[in-house]
Amino acid sequence: MNRRRYSRFLLLAFAAALFAGLVMGIGISRLVSQAEYTQTARLTGTSYSRYPELEQTLVQGLHDGIAADLQTGTELLHRYGYTLHTFNNKNRLLIITGSVGLWMLLFLLFAAVQYRLQIKRKERIAGLTAYLYSINQGQHHILPRTGEDEYSFLEDELYKTVVELRHTRETAVLERQSLADNLSDIAHQIKTPLTSVSLMAELLADSRQNSADALYVEKIQSQLTRLERLVSSLLTLSRLDAGTLELQQLPVDVYTMLASAAEPLENILSGRRQTLTLQSSPAISYRGDYHWSSEALLNVLMNCSEHIPTGGNITVSYAQNPVYTQIIVEDSGAGFPAEELPHIFKRFYRGSNARKDSVGIGLALAHSIIQRQNGSIHAENRPEGGARFVIKWYAY
């Protein structure tokens, strides 16, 4: 029962107690007044019938009488201004006050009991809430039983659910770890023949060959580089899923990190006649992992390069405030279709403007790495056209 409903309940109980007290008081006062008036009229009528000369004395002091003298006594009382209302008014205040007081006492007792029950309910709810909080913090323990009450069944079901969820979570962690280990083994097994093929491709490139052979060797080397990067990305994603990728929390200079991220793209940007502008700002840093932050930004920059035309531009700026460090990456491409914006960070999602050789891992990998470092990444369209990525590394 929430506070508003409880207050309304107490108000209704108070009104009911007050109404019951008033009704009882008025009823009792009428009964008592009627009995007193009847008795007085009987006594007065009896005495006056026998001793008319004692009229004044009877008015001053009333004695026992019989039923037959009731009318005489009533007439005599009326003659001197004594009516039922006279006796009713005389006793009403005392009886009503006593009745209301009794019901108010009952109400206070009821309210005290309800208040105590409410306090116990709050304590029980607070205890169950604290238990769930401790579970969320990784502190697994048995919920102490304080006795049977209305929350006992909920407590039992809650404990069963927590135990089942913990078992499911442990199983999922083991399965993810097993998957990460298997992917790691597969990746290492793939890297061995890739290294051999890469070496042979380099030897072919160094040997004398005609222009057609050189073109084929260049394509082989390009596909090998792409394949190596794909295997590395899949391995990183599996380690992120399993929670085995260790990320450092050290000061990272933003400009240095961005320059490191852009360096592997120099040849690609040059071949596409694209320009990358990194706006220089005062020294700004945040706490994170330099290597993996650079990896995440490399994927973002590569995505921009793949979605802008030949001769396009990419601009990177950054700033800082007491809450977060912000990096903004913008390009001069066509931007994102509105229906694709909610999905671009999903794994293996390929938008309508994606390159044929894209598999949809780069942005998903960047999203996971940034989130693991207490950050966020958001994609949107620029009002003047083009895509914009807003990355925030939070201080707390």
Rank of each mutant, 00 (worst) to 15 (best):
A379S: 06
E295V: 12
T315K: 07
H78K: 13
I369F: 04
E75M: 09
L84N: 08
T275D: 06
E340A: 03
T74H: 12
H188C: 03
L227S: 11
S152K: 04
S184T: 01
E246M: 13
T72M: 07
Y51C: 07
H140R: 09
A172G: 07
N91P: 01
L301C: 04
L298S: 09
L235P: 02
I220Y: 09
A20H: 00
T168W: 10
S152W: 01
N353Q: 14
G45I: 01
E228V: 01
L245K: 02
L341V: 01
D149R: 00
A15M: 08
R145S: 08
G127F: 15
R5D: 15
A259Y: 08
T325K: 01
H343P: 03
S33L: 08
F107Q: 00
I142N: 09
R355T: 08
N210C: 05
R116M: 00
N89Q: 08
L341M: 03
L215E: 15
T171C: 06
I220V: 07
P337D: 11
Q248Y: 12
H378G: 05
L132P: 03
V231I: 04
E266I: 00
N91Y: 04
A126C: 06
G101E: 04
I125H: 09
P52L: 07
L62P: 04
T195M: 05
E266S: 08
H140N: 11
Q71P: 04
E330K: 09
Q221F: 01
A283H: 13
R124H: 13
Y255S: 10
G81R: 05
S29H: 01
T256M: 13
P264K: 12
A296V: 02
S260R: 13
Q221D: 13
E266K: 14
R124G: 06
T83D: 14
F19E: 11
E75W: 10
G101M: 05
Q221C: 03
E263C: 05
